[in-house]
Computed example of a mutant assay.
Amino acid sequence: MKLRKATAVAATALVLSVTATACGGDDSKSSASGSGSGGGDKIKIGIKYDQPGLGLKEPDGSFSGFDVDVATYVAKELGYDADQIEWVETKSADRENALSRGDVKIIAATYSITDERKAKVDFAGPYLLAHQDLLVKSDSDISKGTDLNGKKLCSVTGSTSAQNVHDTIAPKAQLREYSGYSECIAGLQSGAVDAVTTDDSILAGFAAQDKYKGQFKLAGLKLSNENYGIGVKKGDTKTVNKINTALEKMVSDGSWEKAVEKNFGPADYKNEPAPKIGNIVK
Rank of each mutant, 00 (worst) to 15 (best):
A130P: 03
L128H: 05
T157S: 13
A186Y: 02
A124F: 00
L175R: 07
L203R: 09
T197Y: 03
L148H: 05
G205N: 05
L128Y: 09
D139C: 04
Q189F: 01
F123T: 01
T198R: 07
R176G: 01
L128P: 00
G145Q: 11
R176V: 14
L134M: 11
L153D: 07
N164K: 12
T197W: 02
A162K: 11
A186D: 14
P171M: 10
S179P: 07
I202C: 04
G145D: 08
A130E: 12
Q163G: 09
L153K: 10
S161Y: 13
S161M: 03
F123I: 04
S182Q: 13
G125V: 00
F123A: 03
Q174V: 15
D199A: 12
K151R: 13
G158P: 08
L203Q: 06
Q163N: 14
S140L: 07
V121L: 12
V156E: 14
Y178S: 11
S190K: 13
K152F: 05
G191T: 11
S182T: 12
C184W: 04
D133A: 08
G187C: 10
L153I: 08
I185G: 04
T146L: 08
S201C: 05
A130M: 08
L188R: 07
T198A: 11
A186V: 07
V193D: 05
R176Q: 10
S140H: 05
S155E: 08
V165A: 09
V121I: 15
D167V: 10
G145K: 09
E183A: 14
D194I: 08
A124L: 01
N164Q: 14
R176W: 00
Y127C: 01
A162Y: 02
E183M: 12
A170S: 14
C154M: 10
T157D: 10
D167Y: 12
D200Q: 04
E183K: 14
S179N: 14
N149K: 10
A186N: 12
L135N: 07
A186M: 03
S190R: 09
L188Y: 03
Y181W: 09
A204M: 06
P126C: 02
Q163E: 13
V121E: 11
C184I: 02
T157I: 14
I185A: 04
L188C: 09
G150R: 03
N164W: 12
L153Y: 02
A124R: 02
D139P: 01
E177V: 06
K152I: 07
